[in-house]
């Protein structure tokens, strides 16, 4: 399993898209929004304050983690390489861990880059950022499982379109850009039923040193992570059998 996980790690980090989207885009957004916030008298909105926006960007960067893992699985499915591995002694468990484990350090590295860059833009550096990083792990897992699920079900060509929708859903329904309560109604209900705003609120609370504020968001994220993980395993096993 270690060799397969190492292979997957190399496949991801050797793709320039990984750096460009995974770390580059969130950093550019942090820079842009911070400058915008500073240039306008009284700031723009509370979501754009660096203490709120940086943890949200860390979560946003995980959308690309989902993309990387999805593309990896879909690419392997398309090639005969996976057929070769299916004939090997690797088990279903080896495959799942092999696809998930290498993605986690990449996700955490993206979050660290977001926080480090945000520190230059005024984010207060405290020990709570480490707590936030710890709590980002279940969120990263959830996004990774979404990626594996999509990668197991869709072709690599279909994946691009579906992921552009996914990235939009994860950001617009997450409260990254504005307080979802400003719109309220059905929109807020949908946001509450999806895990993305909970992931953002949890990261914000943890980074701000408000451990009580991570609840009930943590349960939502864990619940979705377990459900997405189970669905990904089932979908991948079905593909193995097919």
């Amino acid at each position: 399993m270690t060799a397969f996980a190492a292979r997957n790690f190399k496949e991801i980090v050797r793709d320039p898209l990984t750096l460009l989207f995974g770390a580059g885009l969130p950093v550019v957004l942090i820079l842009f929004i911070s400058l915008l916030q500073r240039s306008l008298p009284g700031g723009t909105n509370a979501a754009f304050e660096i203490g709120s926006f940086a943890p949200a960007m860390a979560v946003f960067s995980f959308s690309f983690v989902a993309l990387f893992s999805g593309l990896l699985v879909a690419g392997d499915r398309k090639s005969a390489f996976l057929m070769r591995l299916f004939a090997s002694p690797l088990t279903a468990r080896d495959f799942i861990f092999g696809y998930v484990l290498p993605v986690l350090p990449i996700a955490l590295a993206q979050a660290v880059i977001c926080f480090v860059f945000a520190a230059f833009m005024g984010l207060k550096v405290t020990g709570w950022l480490l707590f936030a990083l710890l709590l980002l792990i279940p969120t990263a897992l959830m996004y990774t499982f979404f990626g594996l699920l999509f990668g197991s079900l869709l072709s690599d060509k279909q994946l691009g379109g579906v992921f552009s929708i996914f990235v939009n859903v994860t950001t617009w329904f997450s409260g990254t850009w504005f307080d979802t309560g400003l719109i309220g109604g059905a929109f807020k209900t949908i946001c509450n039923l999806l895990p993305f705003s909970h992931a953002v609120e949890m990261a914000r609370a943890a980074a701000a040193g408000d451990p009580a504020g991570i609840f009930p968001h943590l349960w939502w994220v864990l619940g979705y992570a377990v459900a997405a993980g189970a669905a990904a395993v089932l979908a991948f096993r079905a593909k193995m059998k097919a």
Partner: peptide
């Protein structure tokens, strides 16, 4: 499975 291996019809490797 350790006793058996195959080379599929299409070339099968990890591209990167």
């Amino acid at each position: 499975r350790r006793m058996v291996n195959l080379s599929p019809q299409e070339s099968a490797f990890a591209g990167k």
